[in-house]
Structures are given as C-alpha cells and as structure tokens.
Design a protein around this nucleic acid. Sequence first.
DNA 1: GGACGCCTTGGTCAATTGACTAAATACCAC
DNA 2: GTGGTATTTAGTCAATTGACCAAGGCGTCC
Lengths: 230, 230
Amino acid sequence: MRCRTRYRDCKGAPPIEAIPRRRAGITPAREEAEQAFLDAAERLLVSVGYAGITTRKVAEEAGLNHGLVHYYFGSMQELLLQVLERFTDRLVERQREMYAAPGPFIEKWRTAMRYLDEDEDSGYAKIWYELQAMGWNDPEIRKRVARITRVWYDVIDEALTKAMDEYGLDRSTFSSEAIVTLVGTFNMGIHLQRLSGVNWGHRELLRAIDGWLVQLEAAKAQRESAKKPA
Amino acid sequence: MRCRTRYRDCKGAPPIEAIPRRRAGITPAREEAEQAFLDAAERLLVSVGYAGITTRKVAEEAGLNHGLVHYYFGSMQELLLQVLERFTDRLVERQREMYAAPGPFIEKWRTAMRYLDEDEDSGYAKIWYELQAMGWNDPEIRKRVARITRVWYDVIDEALTKAMDEYGLDRSTFSSEAIVTLVGTFNMGIHLQRLSGVNWGHRELLRAIDGWLVQLEAAKAQRESAKKPA
DNA sequence: GGACGCCTTGGTCAATTGACTAAATACCAC
DNA sequence: GTGGTATTTAGTCAATTGACCAAGGCGTCC
C-alpha cells in the first residue's frame, strides 16, 4: 500500500526501503560527518540531557544539515545507539588499559580516583549516566549498559583479587566479589551525587581509603623485607 | 500587548493572569483529583520515565481531563515539582522513622536493606532516580534533590556515629563521615545498577556486611557481659 | 565531456505537545 | 429556585518533532 500523502503513508505502513546500512566503502568525509554527529550528540547529552536531543538540535550542534541524520543513521534511536556503542567501547578500553598497566595496586587506585574528578569536569560522567538513564526506559540500551557494567566489574575483580592477596587481606568475611561490588557501587553513587550537586563526605571517604591502602602497602613492604633477609 | 490570536499572544508575552495558586479552601474532591494526578505521574515515571510524561498522558492515566493539568497546576513543570515534593517528603519521613525507632543498629540496617528490595519491586526506586535524572538538567529540581540527599545523610550520620561508638570501632582511619558517604553512595549505586538490570555481587556484598555486623554485635555483647559481672 | 550514482540541501508532512480558553455544568448560599 | 461562583469539558492554537523526499550538486569512470 503506497503512500497517499505527498511523501508517505504516515501511519503503520512498512518502510518503503531498508535503512541505508553501514557499507564497507565509506568515504573519509562521510566518516568524519558521522563522527561529528556522534560528538554533537555527546555534547548535547552533557548540556541538555537525552530528553532534549532532537534531530534538528544535533544537526545544528554538528553544523550539518538535519536531513543527514536520517540519511546516515536511519533514525534518531540508531544515532543514540551508536553514541552508546562508541562511548562504551572507549570506556572499557580505558579501564582495561589502566588495570593492565604495571605498578602496585595503590597506583591504579589513585589513577581511578583521579578519573573520578576528571570525568566529572570533562562531562564524561554526565554522558555515561545520561545514557544509563536512557536505558532505564529502553531495553536495547539497557542491555548494552548491563553488558558494559559487567565487563567493568570483571576488570576490577581481577585487579582487586590480586591486590587482596598481595595485601594478605582475609577473604572470609569480605570476598573479592563483595569488595568489587562495594567499589563499583560507591563509585557510581559518587558520580550520581555529584550530578545532583552533592559533594558532602566524598573527599573524606577517598582520603580514608587512600590512607588505608597506604597502611596496607606499608605492611606488605614490611612483610617482604622481613622475609627476604631471613 | 494583548493576544492577537484567538487565544493568546503565543510568544514572549507575559502571562495574562497569574497561575491559579493554592488557596486555603480546597474541596476534598479537588484534593483527591490533584493527588490522582500526582499518583498518575509517579506511575508514568515508573513505566516510561520522565521524558515520556505529557499533560495528555498523565490525564489519561489519572482518568481525568487533560485541561485540568493546567487548571490545577498551571504547568507540567509545576506538576512534576509537586510530585518531587510529595515524594521526597515521604522519603525523609520514612528514613527518620526507621532510624529513630528503638533497637540495636543491626536491626535498623536490616530494615534499610529490606527497603532496598522493596523499593525496587514497588517502583519507588525508579521514581526516585527518574526524579534525580530530571534534576541533572533542571536546577530547581536538582536543588531539591541535593537538599533531600543532605537530610538523608544527616539521619544516617547520627545513627552510624552512635553505632560505631557502641561497636567500639576505631574512627582514626575511617571517620563516621567517610562511612556515611560509603553507605550512602553504595546504596545509590546498587539501585542504579539494578535499574540497568545488573545484580552481580549485590547479595554477596549485603551478606558480607551483615556477617560483619553480627560479629560486631557479638563482640559488643561479650564486652558488656564481661563488664557487668566485674 | 558525458553519463551515472552517491551525497547534500532545503524543504514538507502528519503527529504531538504545552498552553490556553469558551462554554457548559455543578455546586452553593440565600 | 435563583444568582453567582467554581469546576469541568471539549476543544483550539502555535510550535516542535521524527520521518521523509525531490532536486540539484559533485566526483568518478568511461
């Protein structure tokens, strides 16, 4: 059943043609333009949130024609999904890189805590939590968010398990699984609170943890120096 | 400058008349209808999120005429603010009640952890985090959210400070402020993850904390029984 | 240098939205 | 029951939105 209106059958009709899908040969210009859209969408996530993103706004922000959104991505939903995709890929890569690096655990921890501040200032956190909030009402996005959270956990789990052994921490009361969950959730909570403008106690908590790790490092060094000479 | 269109000057004109404000004498029927709108808005927060709420949907959900939204509340924004107001009042009241109740700390903790599950099932958590997400892009709502978070912290702080003294916990490394922040943030993080469908490690963490509290309670009981006979 | 196909521009369209209102109705004191 | 006020209904309106398209531009290969 063809469209009776000038352009299309406006309700319930199947799409006349398939969405133009990603082909192998994309010109550099097109690639650049698509990235510009994704960048623009990220900036809008920071400045107005996911609910305020429209095809026109994202095109204006990217300095491109709004018709291109549908030509490139087929729909607004697909554009946002690709934002999520690109963002989470970067997130996981950074996380892996950080914990895979050599050095004592406390170094890695401090790097992670530095990210806590950096991500807030750069808008990285806002993007990530906006995407998550989108997922609360969109199964496809939620699924992806859950997958990334899981990967994130696995990476921390590995690092923490190793660290607990090194520090000789008892795992009978607090398993590494429990600690990982605690770290993962408190990290999210801190970001969440900061998005609401709450900063109370954060510095205090981070300093306490850092102090505790310093103690653990010292104890570890002592154990090792006591063992070697003997 | 009066409206040239049939109804109003549609851009930039000041409101012709003040928004009908809350008067002293509201009939019970009106009160009931307003509550029905607030209830409906909460249900929509659960089912579609804040971005999906419109005057027409909220009216349909409440089984009332959509014109009433503006007659009662003046604007969609005001309706949502009143949802926030009512919701946070209830939240704080429950929190205060819980920690003010008599009984050992571990009891209160367990009640709080029970809420963690209950709130998820009842949609309470979804409402609260949708409202928070709204606040990320709305200063007025963010301010209110921050205030409530602060009150929430104060209540926990009082209970935790007392508990740490009772349990004889050292406060030199982890101050009560740090612990409160840890508890507050990990609680938020757990909710956040569950909204994304992530449950990994939660049970493990909660069980670990509970086990630890049991130990602390036992040690406290021992101390007291050792003191009394002497 | 002409044909061909991809890209881009600058629109249009139906649907939906918040805001708003006039007219009808319900309710109340007298 | 009558007059007046408050509430309710059933709309209207401008603006905005996602989706979509036609026509012309542009690069490339023959």
